[in-house]
């Protein structure tokens, strides 16, 4: 005989409440803004998909999106290979390994706005070590005036800050490969490159996939560093999507378009992550649990 009652719902309730207040309610507020024109506290007009259409046609947003895609692509193209190289170069064990890991992990412990400030000063032409040195070498480097310089500075800053994450993930992945694989390769007479290509890289798939997703999402939402460095300038050179969104929402207080754009932004990231994940999952063999 079975007794039915609904007590089990009580067990789910805390999670439902947490998710409701942390995700669903804020998201629905945004959805609410995105379909209304709010003129005052009690004056709201339903406008349907008007804001979405407006935002989609906005040339400034197109530019920001282009900049953003370029930036994320550059970040992934540089940080992933560089992180793997660093992991391969790290000493595998002993005190040297511990020391190297601690030094490597340091940038990860620094908050974004501090990283921005460090590089802002570091890159200054008059008192900054890097800026002054570059100018001393005869290069005309000025991130407040030159778009390219500002853009590159943000990129280098991100690489400095986050490549260690990839390196640490790859390092952990490498340590998980049993010694027997390397021995077998040596007995077969495989070259160093073959060992990397056919043993290490396939074995790193799992951690690299996680690293790739993390770095993509994070770089696609970059805000603090360019904000601290130049506030999105010079001109619009470092105005990425979140800068643009903030300008719209907080600067101009266009809540409707900003909300519509937020939803589009959210969907872009979700979609891109889904595409990355499925591509990498299907691109080759999946590593199943092994002894």
């Amino acid at each position: 005989m079975k007794t039915y009652n609904n007590k089990a719902w009580l067990l789910v309730l805390p999670v439902v409440l947490c998710v409701a207040f942390s995700a669903i309610v804020p998201l629905m507020t945004v959805v609410n803004y995105s379909v209304q024109d709010i003129l005052g506290p009690d004056q709201k007009v339903f406008v349907g998909t008007e804001w979405f259409k407006l935002v989609m046609r906005d040339p400034e947003l197109h530019e920001a999106l282009g900049r953003q895609i370029l930036f994320s692509a550059a970040v992934l193209a540089i940080e992933i290979p560089l992180g793997i190289l660093l992991a391969l170069a790290l000493p595998a064990q002993g005190w040297r390994s511990s020391l190297a890991l601690v030094l490597l992990a340091m940038p990860l412990l620094i908050p974004q706005n501090v990283v921005g400030t460090i590089w802002q000063i570091y890159g200054r032409g008059d008192i900054g070590l890097a800026g002054a040195a570059l100018n001393g070498l005869g290069l005309d480097y000025n991130y407040t005036g030159d778009s390219m310089d500002a853009w590159l500075t943000v990129l280098v800053m991100d690489i400095w800050h986050w490549t260690p994450l990839i390196a640490l993930l790859a390092f952990a992945g490498l340590r998980a490969i049993p010694e027997a694989y390397y021995q077998a390769a040596r007995i077969d007479g495989a070259s160093r490159l073959a060992v990397f290509r056919f043993i290490q890289l396939p074995k790193l798939r799992g951690v690299l996939l996680i690293g790739l997703l993390l770095r993509f999402m994070d770089s696609f939402m970059i805000y603090t560093e360019p904000f601290v460095l130049t506030g999105g300038g010079p001109g619009n050179a470092t105005t990425f999507l979140s800068q643009y969104l903030t300008q719209k929402a907080v600067g101009q207080f266009d809540l409707g378009p900003a909300a519509a754009f937020s939803l589009i932004y959210f969907l872009i990231i979700l979609l891109a992550c889904f595409v990355f994940y499925s591509l990498l999952q299907n691109a080759g063999p999946t590593e199943k649990a092994e002894h």
Binding site: A184, I187, F198, I199, P202, G284, P285, E287, E290, H291
Partner: peptide
């Protein structure tokens, strides 16, 4: 020579 190990050692992507 050839060697076989406790662990199942094969090239994962082959």
């Amino acid at each position: 020579l050839a060697m076989v190990y406790q662990q199942f050692v094969n090239y994962p992507s082959f």
